[in-house]
């Protein structure tokens, strides 16, 4: 296959950035989307040009590093698929593919397609944990947990922190990400003692980082590579409102 790539090039955070076009020939249908970039970069290096910077690591859809906005969709055209798992058989000879970084105020561009997602870490620091020190835990089977709750907690915990939800959202909201962690811990009895403070603090941090508000459009759920459900946002809203109404001070 022969393809045209229009890729966002931006030297660093301060640079204005622009699209550049590249023709790539001999694209195999068996390649992954990132392997297409490997091929392009190898060529750019041989031509003495600057290769395209992009985040990637595990290349099996679980680390959450890859983050390309492809033809207007976070992680490209396949549902519940990260960029690294997208394969070139999704495209046809002669196609033009536009590739951009995640775009959000809270995710500044570092270079080309690489963005800074450390805001997510700070949201977790605000309360995305259970305060238990190592070494004093009771027996793991001491507290039976309803399988339904455990399964829902797992479904929320499957979030890979890639940021596709933010990129897909017209408001650049981080509600799906934040709600997934709040839900996981609210569904489990271990998370109950801190649930009010957690919901308030994590939402406050989310706002502080500059993410937008949620208008329940659902683009986040539609583009999430792990199928994290919008139900989590409903849970977060319930946790947050409940905390506000019942907390002292």
């Amino acid at each position: 296959m022969k393809l045209t790539l229009k890729i966002w090039r931006q030297q660093n955070t301060k640079d204005k950035g622009k699209f550049e076009s590249y023709q790539v020939s001999d694209v195999s249908k068996d390649m992954s989307f990132l392997e297409l970039f490997d091929v392009l970069n190898e060529r750019l290096i041989n031509e003495g040009k600057d290769p395209v910077a992009f985040d990637h690591d595990c290349r099996e859809g679980i680390c959450g590093a890859c983050s390309m906005y492809i033809n207007g969709r976070a992680h490209g055209p396949w549902d519940e698929t990260t960029t690294c798992q997208l394969h070139m058989r999704a495209y046809n000879d002669g196609d033009t593919i536009v590739v951009e970084p995640w775009r959000a105020k809270a995710f500044p561009v570092i270079k080309d397609l690489t963005v800074d997602r450390s805001a997510f870490d700070r949201i977790i620091q605000a309360g995305g944990y259970i305060s238990v020190n190592t070494g004093n835990a009771v027996d793991a089977n001491a507290i039976p947990i309803d399988k339904f709750d455990a399964d829902n907690a797992f479904a929320a915990a499957a979030c890979i922190g890639c940021g596709a939800c933010v990129a897909a959202c017209k408001n650049s909201s981080a509600m799906l990400f934040t709600s997934a962690k709040v839900s996981q811990l609210a569904l489990l009895p271990q998370g109950h003692p801190e649930r009010k403070q957690r919901a308030m603090d994590m939402v406050a941090q989310m706002d502080k980082e500059g993410f937008g508000s949620c208008t329940n459009t659902g683009a986040c759920e539609a583009e999430c590579p792990k199928g994290i459900s919008l139900t989590n946002i409903a849970r977060l809203n319930r946790e947050f409102i409940g905390a506000g109404l019942t907390s002292e001070g």
């Binding site: 259970i130 238990v132 835990a137 009771v138 793991a140 507290i143 455990a150 907690a153 996981q184 811990l185």
Partner: peptide, 10 residues
């Protein structure tokens, strides 16, 4: 035990 206490959903 430790992981369950942390909320790891086994």
């Amino acid at each position: 035990d430790q992981c369950v206490a942390q909320g790891v959903p086994f």
